[in-house]
């Protein structure tokens, strides 16, 4: 039980470091740590398939893409022009107001039940594969077309015009 609160504290801490560190490369590295804590959350929930996909796709593919772009543009120095302090304070207040609203509405809705894993096989690859390829076969195929078009679009956008 206390493991969950420790990991939750770590994810909040690292995500705060992501947005408050000056150097963009440090931000990406802290984001990798944040996503690693999310992977631990998935494993604690026994959602093993999602944990592995989060590990491979987010930490392996997406963040390497971020890091690669940062290195490509040679932005790994602290030259980001900072917003004025007034705008920063306003942004933090706006985000804090949203958080207070969400938590207050949660408090009004009363006490919640405990999350219980009724079926231990729920998040395993076998069960999810069955659901994915029977109930969600068409969206799965459509998402492959989406990935193909995204790949073509990315290559077309990043190509130098001749």
């Amino acid at each position: 039980m206390s493991l969950f609160y420790f990991v939750a504290f770590l994810s909040v801490f690292f995500s705060l470091l992501v947005i408050f560190s000056k150097n963009p490369v440090h931000s990406v590295l802290y984001l990798i740590l944040t996503f690693f804590t999310f992977t631990i959350h998935y494993f604690l929930l026994n959602a093993q398939f999602l944990g592995i996909v989060n590990f491979i796709v987010y930490m392996g593919a997406i963040l390497v893409l971020f890091l690669y772009t940062l290195m490509l543009m040679n932005l790994n120095h602290d030259t980001e022009p900072l917003k004025s302090n007034l705008l920063k304070v306003i942004g933090v207040i706006a985000g804090g107001c949203l958080l207070v609203t969400l938590i207050a509405s949660l408090k009004i809705s009363g006490n919640s039940e405990i999350v219980v894993l009724k079926d231990p096989n729920l998040g395993l690859v076998k069960n999810l594969g069955n659901v994915l390829f029977h109930q969600f076969l068409l969206p799965f195929e459509v998402s492959s077309i989406l990935l193909l078009s995204a790949m073509v679009g990315a290559v077309l956008l990043a190509k130098k015009e001749s």
Partner: peptide
């Protein structure tokens, strides 16, 4: 996970979502 209320997960996700919003704004 047998002993963690649903509310705590919702609060954790709300906090991280708001941190993301603050990052976009600042």
């Amino acid at each position: 996970i047998q002993s963690i209320p649903l509310n705590h997960y919702i609060i954790l996700s709300a906090i991280i979502f708001c941190i993301g919003i603050i990052g976009v704004l600042t």
